[in-house]
Design a protein around this nucleic acid. Structure first.
Lengths: 239, 239
DNA sequence: CTCGAAATGAGAGCGGCGCTCTCGCAGTGC
DNA sequence: GCACTGCGAGAGCGCCGCTCTCATTTCGAG
C-alpha cells in the first residue's frame, strides 16, 4: 500500500494490480464462473503458475474482486446520493436507487459475483461482510434522515406476527453505524430492509431476464418500484 | 413418452431417466456450476462419452433439469394453494408464498439453477419460458380471484410516471392465461409483479446469506413480507 | 431368416481448467 | 561476496466438456 522501497516490491505491486485489472476485465466479459486464472495469466503475459505468487488461489482472487466491487458499488450509490441536497430525502432516495440499478446493469458480471449464485465450494471470508453492507447503509441513512424530518413509514397491516425480535440485528446495525440521528422506529427498519430486497429482486429479475415479456421499459418500471418504496417509507418525493 | 415398442427404446427411456435422476442428485448436492457430466456418467456406471448418446451436451441436460424444476416448483406452489378453500384468497396467498420459500430452501441447487446467475455461455431455450411462468401464474390467479371478490390494491402514490404502457405485456399475459375472471386493474397487475420480485428477492437474500446478521428468524420475516404484500394487493387475511 | 443399417457403449484423445512441485535466475540484505 | 529469498517457467496431476473411432448389439426390411 505505501511507497515500495525496492524494485522487487514495486514490481510486485504493479503486477498485482495488472492481474487484478485483467481479472476484472474477464469478470466483466465472462462472468464469475467463466473467470479462469489461466486466462488471466495469459492476458498479463504470464504462465499460470506464476500468478500463484500473487494470489494463493482462484478463490483469493475472487475474494479480492468481490471486496473491490462491493466498494465500487457502495461508492457509486453513495456518490449519487450525496450529490442531491441533503434535505431532499426523496431525491436522495431516488438517486441512490437509480445509481444501484445503473451500476448493476453496466456490470452484470460484477452483479453476479456480488449477489448471484455463490460459487460452489466458495465461502465468502469475513472481510467481505463489512463492504457488503455499504448499499444498505446508504439506504438506511436516507431513511434515518427522513425519519428525523418527520417521515413515518406506513404502519404494518394487521395480522403480522410482530417483527421487533426478528430485526433486532438490523436495529443494532443501524445504531452501531450511526445511520439514524435520533432513533428509528422498528417499522422503518423493517420497511428499509424489505425495500432493499425488493430493489435487489427487481434488478436481478431484469438482469437475468425474468421480466422479459412482462415489462417493456425496465428503467421506468424500476423507478416505479423505487417511488412506491419511498411512499411506504413515508419519504416525500418532490414532484 | 408413450409405451416403447422395442427393448432398445425401453432401455433408452430407462437410462435417460437414470441419467436425469443422477444429474438431479448432483444438482442438489453440488449446485448447477458443480454439475459435471462426467460425474453423472460415473454415477450411472457409464463412460462419459456414452451419456452423449442421450444428451447432446451438458447444456441440454441442464435445460431438461431446468424445465423439470420449474414444473416441480410450480406444482408445489399450486398444490399448496389449491389445498386452501377457494374463497379464502388470503389463505391461498399465504400458502402459495410459503410453499415458494419452502421449496427453494429445500433445494438451493435447483433455486440457483432457476433464478441464480445464468451459466456463462448458456442461453435458456424457448421451451423453458412457459414453465418458468407457473409461479407468477398462481400468484396472478389468486390476485384475480381476490379482485373479483372486491379486493382492491392500494393506489399508487403520486409521482409515478404511469405504468400502463410499461406492464402491457403483463396484462396480456394475465388475459391470455385466463388468470382473472373479470378483468384486473392495472394497479393490481403492477403490484402482483412487484410482489413476485419482492418474494424472490427475500428468498434469494436468505439463501445466499445477505440477511445474515439482520434477520434472526427468516421464516417469520418472510411471512411478514408475504402479509404486507397481501395488504398492498388488498387481499384480506383471516386473523 | 438374413443381412445391411442404425443405435449403443467403451476407449483414446484434444484442449482447457485449478493447483503443485521443481528448477534456474535475479534481486536483496548482511 | 554470499547466502537467502522472491520469482517465472515448465512439467505434471486429476478434473472438465466434447469428439472420434471401433466393436458389439439390436432392429427392421426384404
Amino acid at each position: 500500500m505505501s511507497t515500495p522501497r525496492t524494485a522487487r516490491a514495486l514490481a510486485r505491486e504493479t503486477l498485482t494490480q495488472e492481474i487484478l485489472d485483467a481479472a476484472r476485465a474477464r469478470l466483466r466479459s465472462d462472468g464469475p464462473a467463466g473467470l479462469s486464472l489461466r486466462a488471466v495469466a495469459r492476458d498479463v503475459g504470464m504462465v499460470s503458475s506464476a500468478v500463484y505468487r500473487y494470489f494463493p488461489s482462484r478463490d483469493a482472487l475472487l475474494t479480492r474482486l468481490l471486496i473491490d466491487s462491493y466498494g465500487e458499488l457502495g461508492e457509486a450509490v453513495e456518490r449519487a446520493e450525496t450529490e442531491v441536497a441533503r434535505e431532499d430525502t426523496g431525491g436522495r432516495w431516488l438517486a441512490a436507487c437509480r445509481a444501484l440499478r445503473t451500476w448493476c446493469m453496466d456490470r452484470p458480471g460484477d452483479f453476479a459475483l456480488l449477489y448471484g449464485t455463490p460459487i460452489p465450494g466458495y465461502a465468502a471470508p469475513q472481510d467481505t461482510v463489512e463492504p457488503a453492507t455499504r448499499v444498505i447503509q446508504v439506504l438506511a441513512r436516507i431513511v434515518g434522515d427522513a425519519y428525523a424530518d418527520g417521515a413515518r413509514a406506513v404502519p404494518a397491516p394487521r395480522g403480522g406476527a410482530g417483527t421487533d425480535a426478528t430485526v433486532a440485528g438490523a436495529r443494532d446495525f443501524v445504531v452501531e453505524h450511526g445511520l439514524a440521528r435520533s432513533g428509528l422506529a422498528t417499522e422503518s427498519v423493517v420497511r428499509t430492509l424489505m425495500a432493499w430486497s425488493q430493489l435487489f429482486g427487481t434488478v436481478s429479475f431484469e438482469l437475468f431476464g425474468h421480466l422479459a415479456g412482462s415489462v417493456t421499459d425496465p428503467a421506468r418500471w424500476y423507478d416505479e418500484v423505487a417511488i412506491r418504496l419511498a411512499a411506504d417509507l413515508g419519504i416525500q418525493l418532490r414532484v
